[in-house]
Simulated scan of single mutants.
Amino acid sequence: MSDKRATEKLHFAASDRPKAQEARAELVKRYGDVDRDEADVIVALGGDGTLLEVLRHTMPDPKPIYGMNCGTVGFLMNEHRLSDLRDRIAVAGPVVINPLRMNATDSSGQSHEAMAFNEVALLRETRQTARIKIRVNGQVQMDQLICDGILLATPAGSTAYNLSAHGPILPITSNLLALTPISPFRPRRWRGALLPYEAAVEFEVQDADFRTVAATADNIEIRDVERVKVAIADDIELCLLFDQGAGLEERILEEQFQY
């Protein structure tokens, strides 16, 4: 594996930020660059948002992705360093992830599909609180949640919006999903649920004409939704590469001891 990766063809995908563009120019000069279709490994330069965009673009033809942090947060990225890139990729550890598939129906009856690697979130659009019915595997688990919103997060995304909303951090190998309310008003003490990886979750927006709600799949937003169905897309597998000793599992573990 390591000998093969050391000679693989690389494609560099960078955000529009100056730091990422400067890094791309230097890396292309050092290591060359091929078209995405010809590449064996894609190197994403930017922050976590850039990596999510690259993941979406590679879904039709999945390739291993090695991210380098030239952005702000970069939780899903490796350290930005120009030297020894081929050697780093050669010994990088793979993590296979599945996205969430969101199917949302808006107030006009139109259906929208989008993929999310971090979370699918429902958020109120106005000053009115959202009122949402929750079904899991076809069974009503909550008749009405009065809240600012609710989200369903993957293990990879559990340290993002989910953590900010006081949801649990999930080990990458946990095969769980985090269902986390955002500023719940009633039931006031409900803090969410851990669901099996294969769970199918459906959100029904109540009084949707007055209490309008938007649904987001990572950074893709659908306005004025009435019904949203979410489940793991187990037919899609994508591979992220992480430096030795700094893999996603280690990062998620360390995040649980931050204070």
Score class of each variant (00 low, 15 high):
69 N>F: 04
64 P>I: 10
64 P>A: 06
81 R>C: 11
46 G>V: 01
40 D>N: 07
84 D>P: 09
42 I>W: 02
79 E>D: 15
82 L>H: 10
86 R>Y: 12
34 V>P: 06
107 S>L: 15
40 D>F: 00
93 G>L: 14
41 V>Q: 01
70 C>V: 01
69 N>Y: 02
120 V>K: 10
96 V>A: 09
45 L>K: 02
72 T>G: 06
68 M>V: 07
105 T>E: 13
63 K>V: 09
68 M>C: 11
102 M>A: 13
92 A>Q: 02
110 Q>D: 14
88 R>P: 05
103 N>Y: 00
87 D>N: 11
57 H>D: 14
60 P>D: 13
56 R>P: 03
116 A>W: 04
103 N>G: 08
90 A>C: 11
99 P>T: 06
123 L>Y: 14
120 V>S: 07
58 T>D: 06
54 V>G: 05
91 V>D: 08
88 R>M: 05
44 A>G: 05
111 S>P: 00
34 V>A: 05
58 T>R: 05
43 V>W: 00
90 A>R: 04
77 M>R: 00
117 F>G: 00
109 G>I: 09
81 R>G: 06
66 Y>M: 04
80 H>N: 12
45 L>W: 03
82 L>A: 13
91 V>L: 06
67 G>R: 00
57 H>C: 10
74 G>N: 11
62 P>K: 02
92 A>G: 06
60 P>Q: 09
115 M>K: 12
61 D>V: 13
69 N>V: 02
104 A>H: 05
124 R>D: 03
102 M>H: 12
37 D>K: 12
70 C>I: 00
71 G>Y: 02
96 V>W: 09
121 A>I: 12
83 S>L: 10
45 L>G: 01
65 I>E: 03
34 V>F: 03
122 L>D: 07
123 L>R: 15
113 E>A: 13
53 E>F: 08
93 G>C: 12
106 D>T: 05
77 M>G: 10
71 G>H: 08
64 P>S: 03
65 I>N: 03
66 Y>K: 04
36 R>G: 12
41 V>L: 06
117 F>L: 12
78 N>K: 09
118 N>H: 09
111 S>D: 14
88 R>V: 04
83 S>N: 13
93 G>E: 15
58 T>Y: 00
119 E>H: 07
44 A>V: 03
37 D>E: 15
104 A>E: 03
88 R>A: 13
123 L>I: 13
60 P>G: 10
81 R>D: 12
102 M>C: 10
67 G>L: 02
47 G>W: 01
78 N>V: 07
47 G>D: 02
47 G>I: 04
94 P>D: 07
78 N>M: 11
67 G>I: 09
118 N>A: 12
104 A>I: 00
115 M>C: 14
103 N>L: 14
113 E>P: 01
121 A>N: 08
39 A>S: 10
98 N>V: 09
124 R>V: 05
101 R>S: 11
63 K>G: 07
81 R>M: 11
124 R>E: 11
78 N>A: 08
117 F>R: 06
44 A>S: 13
40 D>L: 02
87 D>A: 15
87 D>F: 02
56 R>T: 09
54 V>L: 10
60 P>S: 09
72 T>W: 08
95 V>R: 12
117 F>S: 04
37 D>W: 04
93 G>S: 15
88 R>C: 07
61 D>I: 08
67 G>T: 01
95 V>T: 14
116 A>D: 06
73 V>A: 14
116 A>K: 04
122 L>Q: 10
36 R>L: 14
50 T>Q: 05
121 A>P: 05
120 V>E: 11
99 P>M: 08
